[in-house]
Nucleic acid binder design. Sequence first.
DNA 1: CGGGATCCATACAGATACTG
DNA 2: CAGTATCTGTATGGATCCCG
Lengths: 141, 141
Amino acid sequence: MPKPDHPEVTRARRGDLFDPACPTRLLLDRVGSKWTTMLVLLLSKATGELRFTELKRGMTGVSQKMLAQTLRSLEQDGLLDRRVEATSPPRVYYKLTERGESLAVPLRALREWAEANMADIQEHSRAVADHSGGDHRGEMP
Amino acid sequence: MPKPDHPEVTRARRGDLFDPACPTRLLLDRVGSKWTTMLVLLLSKATGELRFTELKRGMTGVSQKMLAQTLRSLEQDGLLDRRVEATSPPRVYYKLTERGESLAVPLRALREWAEANMADIQEHSRAVADHSGGDHRGEMP
DNA sequence: CGGGATCCATACAGATACTG
DNA sequence: CAGTATCTGTATGGATCCCG
């Protein structure tokens, strides 16, 4: 998730930082947020850099807060480069770093899987829900 | 996420179901939960089926509630097969469906990326945090 | 053993308002 | 334009109890 500061610390306080050595956990904590993945995917498509507003426009539904938060998170992780033009009004350009681009590869594979399978999954899911929902269930009196 | 019923409905009520057609969103809503991914990965490694307790043991830190919830979610999506032996005590075996196995492929790619890059990322992240934290910041008076 | 139901803490995400 | 700050609702995930 695009947590601003130190998620691990928070978790550590809870006493359940079970296996911090597992890198997959760490990655999923970041990829888990849909915006992180969408952002990487969006930037990996772009030829050059993209500005804040362009990104916001490309990611329908994201709030400026979430976008900024995700951007800072990716920047801190070294997956994103931020370039500021100190004009007025200022212009800020974002682009993936090499590492960021490399992350886009498995992410694209995931997206392809999603595009190939999610329709079936939704249908399956709905069918199951209908079955158990409309079969023998008595609604509230 | 392993939402029991209909996450889309909840979002729809909020009025911001921006682009429900995007399957990547849908997938990430499920993969986003770290347990979903871990579960698929764990089961894809297993030769045959695994029982509830074995799964719980393999996923350090998961609560039985989250495990059960994730299992139900995957089952409803048709990614998981559930087989009950009506003995006493009962035994329940889980294994991935074909589609579930196919999901494991891109997920494994993601894990490999994580194992190759997360250490660097963490270091980078920590270095940046240290820099901005101890450099020029005046703490509260 | 394999869960379902319930209660509860919180951290994640949205809306809004303010700055340079 | 490009954010930061605050306030708050709510879904998520954990703990616990209980049942077959």
